[in-house]
Amino acid sequence: MKKKNRVVYSIFTGPLVTIFSIVVLIPFIVGIYYSFFEWDGIRTNPMTFVGLDNYLRLISDQQFINSAILTIKFTFIAVISVNLLGLGFALLVTSKLKMVNPARTMFFMPNLIGGLILGYIWQFIFSDAFRLIGENTGFQAIFRNWLLDSSLALYAMVIVFSWQMAGYMMVIYIAGIQGIPGETLEAAKIDGASAWQRLKNITLPLLMPSFTICLFLTLSFGFKIYDVNLALTEGGPAGSTELFALHIYNEIFGRYNYGYGQAKAVVFFLMVAAVTLTQVYITKKREVEM
């Protein structure tokens, strides 16, 4: 590169690269460094180097393991529920009805509301509204306070997360469905394929690229859920919904275990990266075979 070009290049890319390095790259690397120390976060207190101790401690940390299992369980159920709903909505609103556009708008709406506010909205629904409906109608098997029941609270989170994400996935599936050539479906119809056969043998296989994107997004959003968790359950009752992101926050800023909490945060990153990359790899491979 000529000298003048190099100057221009730095003027265009320099500012953002600098900001990005200060905000993301450097803290990420420094974070790995912190994870080898024991420290309570107070600047004047000494940081003690403990090597890999923080990571070894994780293996016998029951709370950490519980939280990991809960997160995996939550993500697994949530991914299925969000994608079934999203795909269902997409099939519903790509028909030739007049109501399709307003319905699309309404299904997408919750996605614009932030997780914290969503959590508070549903906190009212699951606690007071459900309890009152149950008392007034007698259906107390379903309509009781879900958030006080440790076996139901996680499902309450799945419902809120699905409510938030289904519209988003719907939009992606719609794009996929609209990309399927009409003639293919028409030809199958003439050949006598039923609606279910057309869906199973044509629409769904051709939607593979949409599945890749949707699974990737729901997996990573599900794993990283925090705002909804905080506003809806705060990890309760009795730690039955303390998912990973909240667990890490509590370890660092609640119990002041800065080094140990940071080790958990690094493991969290490795988990997210491993799961999402594996998923993309597997679904991409299937796409090629199609």
Binding site: P27, Y34, Y226, A245, V266, F268, V272
Partner: peptide, 19 residues
């Protein structure tokens, strides 16, 4: 830029505030 999109915010938050 692209690779960092996988990093959860919780992995960066504490060192970021310290920095």
């Amino acid at each position: 830029f692209i690779a960092t999109m996988l990093i959860p915010f919780q992995t960066i938050m504490m060192p970021l505030i310290q920095f």
